[in-house]
């Protein structure tokens, strides 16, 4: 038996719209739920006090510092590597097996699960290099995690810069490197920033990598070799051990809201960039 095509059309369409509605609802619900439960917990003491009684009371100040510390190290290491890779791929080589190998490496690295990165960071940085559970170990492991994102977005940004600019610069007797640093990179900067900002978001939310490389010390880290728990790790421990629901919600709210703001920034930057070059 064949259904009337118009009827099928209407049935299928309403079903698909329902599914879409459900998906969007679930995703919006997550944010609303966490915000509604978590925002009331936020206060000056919560943000700027030390963790007390394993997190049952007190604030989350050390976790803010650790998160910032880890993210900063990751960015300082991964940005030059990533942007440099992208420059090499777009400006210095022809498509060939070298570029294919490099791109394949980046793509595979992007797919490596964070627990494997955690294992790797643990054995290499924490144990073999004897950095211990520390900001340095954690930051380096996160750097490996965000490297592929930075490479990919930077590559796209560099490719979007009109080739004519380079022709003009070369015809003016400007060397390749000067052309890249003075003309191409400034034009691609918003696109490159998008990748970097997205990476900040990922570093802030990452748990598995950080837990096994930076540890979970309650103190505020000062040197590179201090251990410290990031916000995400702190939240994980609070939630898993059921130490304090209000504090867990509060931490989750800060996590989610900061990541959303960061991603919105990245998105806006990207839109601006695309508008300029399309």
């Amino acid at each position: 038996m064949r259904l009337d095509p118009l009827l099928t059309e209407r049935l299928v369409k309403s079903l698909l719209w329902c599914f879409t509605g459900l998906t969007i609802f679930v995703l919006i619900f997550i944010i609303t739920f966490i915000s509604v439960k978590g925002l009331p917990q936020l206060s000056w003491t919560f943000l700027f006090h030390d963790i007390e009684d394993m997190g049952r009371t007190g604030g989350i100040f050390p976790t803010l510092v650790s998160t910032l510390y880890l993210t900063l190290i990751a960015l300082l290491v991964a940005s030059p590597l990533g942007v440099g890779s992208a420059i090499y791929l777009t400006e210095y080589t022809l498509e060939g097996w070298v570029t294919r190998l490099i791109r394949f490496g980046a793509e595979c690295l992007a797919g490596v699960p964070s627990i494997i990165l955690g294992l790797f960071g643990f054995v290499l940085f924490v144990i073999k290099l004897n950095f211990g559970w520390s900001m340095l170990s954690g930051g380096l492991s996160l750097a490996i995690m965000i490297l592929p994102t930075i490479i990919r977005t930077s590559e796209e940004a560099l490719k979007a810069v009109p080739k004519e600019y380079q022709d003009v610069c070369f015809s003016l007797g400007i060397s390749k490197w000067q052309t890249i640093t003075r003309v191409v990179l400034p034009c691609a900067l918003p696109g490159i920033m998008t990748g970097i900002v997205l990476s900040i978001g990922r570093s802030i939310g990452e748990t598995a990598v950080v837990l096994f490389t930076a540890g979970a010390s309650l103190r505020t880290p000062t040197t590179l070799f201090d251990s410290g728990r990031s916000m995400a790790v702190h939240f994980y421990i609070l939630a898993r051990e059921g130490l304090s629901m209000p504090n867990a919600y509060g931490t989750a709210a800060i996590l989610i809201i900061s990541i959303l703001l960061i991603n919105i920034t990245a998105y806006t930057l990207m839109q601006r960039f695309l508008q300029k070059y399309r």
Binding site: L81, G84, Y88, A106, L109, L119, F120, L147, P148
Partner: peptide, 21 residues
Amino acid sequence: KVLLLLALSAIGSLALITIFI
């Protein structure tokens, strides 16, 4: 040459991860 070295960072990390695991 320096840029080529940087560009090998991703595949290099992947290799290191594989080796150590």
